[in-house]
Amino acid sequence: MTTTVQVDFRTRLQNWIPKLVLAPSLGVIMVFVYGFIVYTVYLSFTNSKILPSYDLVGMANYTKLFQLPAWTLAITNLAIFASLYIVISTAIGLTLAIFLDQKIRGEGVLRPIFLYPMALSFIVTGTAWKWLLDPGIGIEHTMHLWGWASFHFDWIKNSKYAIYTVVLAAVWQTSGFVMAMFLAGLRGIDNEILKAAQIDGASNWNLYWRIIIPQLRPAFLSSFVILSHLAIKSYDLIIALTGGGPGRSTELPATFMYSYTFTRNEMGVGAASAVIMLMTIAAIMIPYLYAELKEVK
């Protein structure tokens, strides 16, 4: 009698332990992620200024946000930055992966060199490129010293072109990672199909264009998702490379949110901009993760 009660108690305890173990993490995530999201969404409908306030003002912050030239500039910059960054990183990544896949001598040396920037902080990357791009001491100066007197490269000081220097530094940091994803995809392709097509007289160009690249769809998709996610979140790189300048010419939504919330004391507007950022990322991530999860099962 007593033993069955004990067994019963033990099994019931055993059934509860897993849930108890998971509970703290779940609780923390529910509060610090989802609770905080709800709170920020709520703040975006209030007239919060320097401190949170709970007076609802409807859509006023969003109306104001989209009338602010600084916000329009930030999302225009994001559109330019993200599209160039994604396209160029993907093109470089794919090219390097295909080239590295040609039985290259020294692949084991080249691969880590292409990829190491990914281990660095964006602050370090920004510091290095800020200096290289500085016309007075960096690449332009060096070219002059080497005798190319007409060489001119001062984009970082030019509010029209500064955003492209952000693209350059960001591509430098992550294109090697895109290469790694494509290379993994290339190495997973079945050689028998390629050999069959070669017997049929297909050229290398055709092999890649018709057979191999279409099979890399998953790698294209993952790199698109990761790069767009990184682009929308970009904050440190801007801070270290251009500080948002010259003027405000390289502000992105992430820097806009920070300055409106914490230095301009427009917390309601800052919250609204954060909500827009979240919605943009969710529109990309949720369908992707949903598809991935369904496959894993």
Binding site: V33, A254, M257, I281, L293
Partner: peptide
């Protein structure tokens, strides 16, 4: 157990939020 897929989904989504969305409440907390 029942609901574990949803819990995993919630944990997974939390990896990808832009942290700007939690900055204000986090500072307060």
């Amino acid at each position: 157990f029942r609901g574990d897929k949803i819990i995993f989904g919630l944990l997974l989504l939390s990896c990808f939020i832009p942290f700007q969305i939690v900055l204000i409440p986090m500072a307060t907390v």
